[in-house]
Amino acid sequence: MVAKRIIPCLDVKDGRTVKGVHFVGLQDVGDAVELGRFYAMSGADELVYLDISATYEGRHTFTSLVERISKEINIPFTVGGGISSMEDAARLLEAGADKISINSAAVYNPGLIDEIAAKYGSQFVVVAIDAKMIDGRWTVTTKGGRVLTDKELFSWAAEAQSRGAGEILFTSMDHDGTKKGYPCETFARLADSLSIPIIASGGAGCVKDIADVLTEGKADAALAASIFHYGEIEIGDLKRQLTAMGIPMAVNKI
């Protein structure tokens, strides 16, 4: 049986990680490779690097960073942020990314999912969906929740899957940043309606929140940023606690 995955998400701006405290033994918390390696050694199952640069130069720097990550880190990693074309996908694949995550571009140009999946395989395409509840309907948003679209979460996720998405990364914009836990019923409904893995993001404040979304919420993976970056939960410790609760976690002892 496949283990449930724990995935730290690192925001990168102009080649540097933008959140994080100084962990013991870590020289430069802003070095995305060093921080990634630290998480890998702590037991992270995968890493997600999100490029939040707004400039051309920033994006260029990110590509060089992806090459370094691929050279130095020995677990899978996904890259996302601003990917809007086949050229972007090709450039990041070439740089060594294992998967790419597309969000707004997929909403505005759903055919991009088909194109990337056909050329590089579904395992390469994660479709990220940010949604918020509006008048009883899970409405898909873009631009970090600022723009509402006409898409609805469940039908959009099903469409993304049928177009060739390999995984769905769902963030509830109503829960993101609140540290009050994930909307587990919504995650469970999503899991029941899809056959591809679901990564839960946004809302984790404690170990129980993560345990809940991986059990009641039926998610395959939990992604978080702040709780890891600020040392509130240590990944190795989290995985030990989840294992003790009977949730299958990959832990290797060498």
């Binding site: 049986m1 496949v2 283990a3 995955r5 995984e167 056959s195 395959d220 993976a221 990959a250 832990v251």
Partner: peptide, 28 residues
């Protein structure tokens, strides 16, 4: 809960051969 593609970390067991020397039974 079996999904295809089989994607992620899973255990390997009944290990033999020098290729897997030092790899613990049940490693992911």
């Amino acid at each position: 809960g079996i999904k295809v593609p089989h994607m992620g970390w899973n255990r390997i067991t009944s290990l033999k051969s020098p290729l897997l020397d030092g790899v613990k039974e049940g490693s992911y």
